[in-house]
Design a protein around this nucleic acid. Structure first.
Lengths: 219, 219
DNA sequence: GATTGAAGTTACTCTAGCGTAACCTTACGG
DNA sequence: CCGTAAGGTTACGCTAGAGTAACTTCAATC
């Protein structure tokens, strides 16, 4: 089918599916470095090794090109995370594995993460879609947190839904922030970082369940 | 000095200092809603109730205008936080008050926060400056965390610098994420949110010091 | 071995929007 | 009461860059 690669040295004329991926690769790279507006379609076309009209022919306008990047990278991230956990695992292990997968993804796909986290948030055309993805993640984290806080035993304090939601937001934000930290510490591997974060938050959650409560100072 | 406001109903010809603040107000508002690139200088001038050349005369190019916004809002935020704590307070109270001041600032200056957090990060012209501000915050948090973990008593585990740094990044990220959450929960006041976050993280920090450690599952 | 259409190109058009030149107009100090 | 500079305006030049028209070329199919 497409096995005749050996004959031509610098062959052009690649099938659409291949070109599309090359274009998306280039787009993610350029968007992540320059930002949505500063990235020009010419830049992206050049980086993909193709001429601009081909980009328009395959991926449409700049906006739909960016959306395509968003979807590809978002799906990859979600799949990396979802594929790392199984429903039978204990909740803390699920969370840890999810974090590890997330940090692994960020480490391996810097550009994709930058597009998702940095660029997409600032453009309100894409912000809606993005915050829906984030909301899905938060919801999953809420479920995981709740599953680790079973029926309140006598003498323990009930953890209310709003507390769980706040914890989930905090945890997700912490993970995003540590993704930043990862960039400055390339020697740190995702597993150690996931463990660190678990330590920094999970014990807190555990204590909370036992009724320990930090209280604001009087006055 | 400038007390003659009562005489003229719709007076023009305001002194430079006043106009500059109006322009910055408008710029922060428009930048926060539209983003750096999509915001046009005409938009900003119109919103400020002045013509475009005046904006150029007082604040210079678009880039320097945005930088001015960044500095004003960044300074305001820093002052709100720094002004809320005093060195004699116990470290946990300092942290709590800082968080409360931060959430208070975000609640009261949505636009300013959006400019700082959303827009400035995506443009690498400003990203450097921004990450320096963030680094200063992180450093302060590291100090606060360390001061709450005094000389390790016998039988307790030493908390290393890198752990503190990770916790600080996590805490700052959590706060940023909860700033987002605040937008969707306008009834929640900054004080309660600060307390929630303290509960979600401080107890964790306390436990960490006592040698409790979450461990990743084997294999 | 023509035909068709997918892969690819060059060379434009057109607009948004930054930045400015050239020009008014009012307050106020001498 | 007049000169001047600060406050203010209209109207424009110019460029970057999105999007397209109008081609060319190759490979597979009948």
């Amino acid at each position: 089918m497409l096995a005749r690669m050996s004959s031509a040295p610098t062959f052009k004329r690649l099938p659409r599916a291949v070109r599309e991926q090359q274009m998306l690769d280039a787009a993610v790279k350029v968007f992540s470095r320059r930002g949505y507006h500063s990235a020009s379609m010419d830049d992206i076309a050049e980086d993909a090794g193709i001429s601009k009209p081909m980009v328009y022919a395959y991926l449409g306008t700049k906006e739909s090109l960016f959306t395509a990047c968003l979807h590809r990278e978002g799906t990859r991230m979600m799949e990396a995370i979802v594929g790392a956990v199984a429903a039978e695992m204990p909740p803390d292990e699920q969370l840890w594995r999810a974090l590890r997968a997330f940090f692994g993804f960020v480490g391996a796909h810097r550009d994709g993460w930058a597009v998702l986290y940095r660029q997409a948030r600032s453009e309100q055309v894409f912000a809606g879609e993005l915050s829906m993805m984030r909301a899905r993640v938060i919801e999953v984290v809420v479920v995981l947190l709740r599953r680790n806080l079973p029926t309140p035993a006598p003498g323990t304090r009930e953890v209310r839904d709003i507390d769980l939601e706040v914890m989930a937001y905090a945890l997700v934000g912490a993970a995003e922030s540590l993704a930043e930290w990862l960039t400055d510490h390339p020697t740190e591997d995702p597993e150690r970082l996931a463990t660190r974060l678990m330590n920094a938050t999970w014990l807190g959650a555990g204590q909370l369940r036992l009724g320990e409560l930090w209280r604001p100072p009087a006055a």
